[in-house]
């Protein structure tokens, strides 16, 4: 029933007595005028997730302080090439989604779906890359119980991987939407929400990568 924020549906006209004076009824505030990608509620989730990852980053640096030597040694066992490759993959996935969204806006839906499929391909390669990397670590006898560095490494990159997989599902839904012959009324908001989430996956990795592979 509710679409994006600026078309908030009120099923019945409300009597004046009931209308509590809220911000919505006043003149548009300069703080809230403008377009919010996806829908307003989505940002509760996006910003909430960013906040929690912020906590994770802090945990990482504090724990690193308690075991500088351990973290340095741990970092040197990671293959920076894999990390760099994954960063470039996600950045590329992001730009493909940006271009895809542009194609949607210009109503070139076939091209849009191809670009989004391209982004899914970068996501798949990221997951394969991660699987190989984890496999190597396990093969070397390194696991989450080895020490604090590997605990955080597997936990945080694992939680990020879950985000990536959710993002892949979102991209899949987006591809289907762009292939529909007639766009539904909520398609634009859904596409923007999916794109925003995919960029979040990129954004979080942009911080995880240097923490584990570079500054540890």
């Amino acid at each position: 029933m509710l679409g994006t924020d600026d078309e908030e549906v009120q099923p019945l006209p409300r009597p004046a007595v009931a209308a509590a004076p809220t911000a919505k009824d006043g003149p548009p505030s300069r703080w809230t005028s403008g377009h919010v990608p996806g829908e307003v509620g989505l940002w509760i989730f996006i910003l909430g997730d960013m906040l929690v990852f912020g906590l994770f980053f802090g945990i990482f640096i504090v724990q690193r302080g308690d075991g500088l030597e351990e973290f340095r040694a741990g970092r040197e066992t990671l293959s920076t090439e894999f990390g760099v490759a994954n960063t470039v993959l996600l950045l590329t996935g992001s730009i493909l989604v940006v271009l895809g969204m542009r194609a949607v806006r210009e109503n070139r839906r076939r091209l849009a779906s191809q670009l989004l499929l391209g982004a899914m391909a970068t996501g798949t390669m990221f997951a394969i890359d991660k699987a190989i990397e984890w496999g190597e670590k396990f093969g070397d006898g390194l696991n989450p119980g080895t020490n604090d560095f590997y605990t955080l490494y597997f936990a945080f990159t694992g939680i990020h991987l879950v985000h990536l997989l959710i993002g892949m599902v979102a991209l899949g839904v987006m591809v289907r939407l762009t292939r529909r012959p007639t766009p539904g009324e909520h398609d634009q908001a859904l596409l923007e929400s999916g794109a925003t989430f995919w960029h979040l996956v990129d954004l979080l990795w942009l911080v995880l990568f240097p923490l584990f592979y570079l500054v540890a």
Binding site: P37, L203, L206, L214
Partner: peptide, 26 residues
């Protein structure tokens, strides 16, 4: 490295997530 990282984060948020064109609050 940390500063470069957050400059990157800022660009991804502003340009890819379209925060740049969004509300002042966001």
């Amino acid at each position: 490295v940390l500063v470069i990282t957050f400059v990157k984060v800022w660009f991804v948020g502003r340009h890819f997530m379209d925060i740049r064109e969004s509300t002042l609050l966001l």
